[in-house]
Amino acid sequence: MRKDIATPQYTKSILDKHKFTFKKSLGQNFLIDRNILDKIVATAGVGSDTGVIEIGPGIGSLTEQIAKKARKVTAFEIDQRLIPILKDTLSDYPHVKIIHQDVLEADLQEVIAQEFSGFDDLMVVANLPYYVTTPIILKLLTERLPIRGIVVMIQKEVANRMAAEPGTKDYGSLSIAVQYYAVAKSEVKVPKTVFVPQPNVDSSVISLTLREQPPVHVEDEDFFFEVVRSSFAQRRKTLLNNLQNNLFTKEQKLLIQEALNDTEIDGKRRGETLSIEEFARLSNALLKLKLC
């Protein structure tokens, strides 16, 4: 077996060998710390029966550590230049498959059916590019894939927002969108010094354990998320003003006030003070009155 990819020296030798140059537009930052990689794999609970979907494997540093534990790994890589490099670096792992495709354009249900038929334990594990973190995670969650969960390295500020609780500065529509589908927990803080090249910000490993059912009942999911987004449109404004300005008309102010009264929610509160349960009650009440 060759030495681990995730060392500064070996990473540099791979990059030099293939004359690889980083593309800022793809958010390429490769991990060079084996300890962090081990923590990611351990957090994901990857075992001999686990199938893993990886996104953005780079030169394969995380892929390699996942492959040492997992039954099978299928990784999506958007950069054509990395495909031959991955073929080289991961040649010792025949149970790793690289798909040259943008994961945002992939039919993940179909990929899972083809690549992981008969698997009872499936995880998404990745070091995600910062610039597409949110779209990728929301795709993974909203498509209701047959996965146990998601463990990803992302920008620390975004991880804080995803795991935030009501009443905190990080709590917002992203917190609710993620926590509707999963239990979010920020697991490991990661300094920018363990990447090549170094990003401008620190990172965090976040775990998202998928829920069997959402924590609240909503009559219309799309409308629920519209209410949530509208409530955070301007954080300094009150709940009543945000809903009036962004979801309803001034003429419908009485409808909003009636829904607030019915749910015993003070319209002078700000969106960040409402729990997901309160947002569910409010959206159901607003929908009922809107349809009347």
Rank of each mutant, 00 (worst) to 15 (best):
A280R: 00
A113I: 07
E77I: 06
L104C: 09
T273P: 04
V216D: 01
E258C: 12
Y181E: 06
S13R: 15
P166C: 02
D170F: 07
T11I: 15
R81T: 07
E258P: 05
K3H: 14
V103M: 06
M1V: 12
Q109N: 15
Q257P: 04
R211S: 11
S25H: 12
Y131A: 13
T50R: 02
K253G: 05
P84A: 15
G271W: 00
V228A: 00
E277F: 00
Q101E: 12
K3A: 14
N35M: 11
I147Y: 11
P191G: 03
A177I: 02
I78S: 11
D4R: 08
A6N: 10
R269L: 14
N284S: 06
P214I: 04
F22R: 00
P214D: 08
E157Y: 02
V190G: 07
V190E: 03
L240G: 11
P84T: 13
A184Q: 11
V216H: 01
N242Y: 08
K39W: 01
Q28E: 14
G58I: 12
L26D: 05
E219G: 02
K189P: 00
E219R: 04
Y171K: 03
A259R: 03
K290T: 12
F76L: 12
T168Q: 10
L62R: 02
A44D: 01
N160H: 13
I78D: 10
R236W: 02
E221A: 08
K169I: 10
P135A: 04
R148H: 13
K17S: 14
E212N: 15
P191I: 09
G51D: 04
Y130R: 09
T63A: 12
K156H: 03
L210V: 13
D121T: 09
N200I: 03
V52G: 01
E157C: 02
E64Y: 09
D222C: 06
K185Q: 07
V41G: 04
K290H: 12
S48P: 10
E221W: 05
V228D: 00
T74D: 05
F248P: 05
K19R: 15
I154C: 03
G56M: 04
K68L: 13
T89Q: 10
L240A: 13
A44W: 00
E226K: 15
Y180M: 04
L255E: 10
E54H: 11
K23I: 10
C292M: 14
N284F: 00
E54L: 10
H95N: 14
Q101G: 04
K139Q: 14
F223Q: 03
A75V: 13
N160D: 14
S230Y: 12
R211G: 08
L243A: 14
I99R: 12
T263M: 04
N29K: 04
D102L: 07
P84G: 13
L141P: 02
I136T: 07
Q28N: 13
A126C: 13
I78V: 15
F76C: 09
D222F: 08
K288T: 11
V41W: 01
I59T: 05
A164E: 02
G167S: 05
A285E: 00
S175Q: 06
L145E: 13
I99W: 11
L90T: 09
P8S: 07
P199W: 08
D38P: 01
D16G: 05
E212V: 13
P146K: 09
G58F: 09
Y10K: 13
E110T: 10
G172N: 02
K69I: 12
S230H: 09
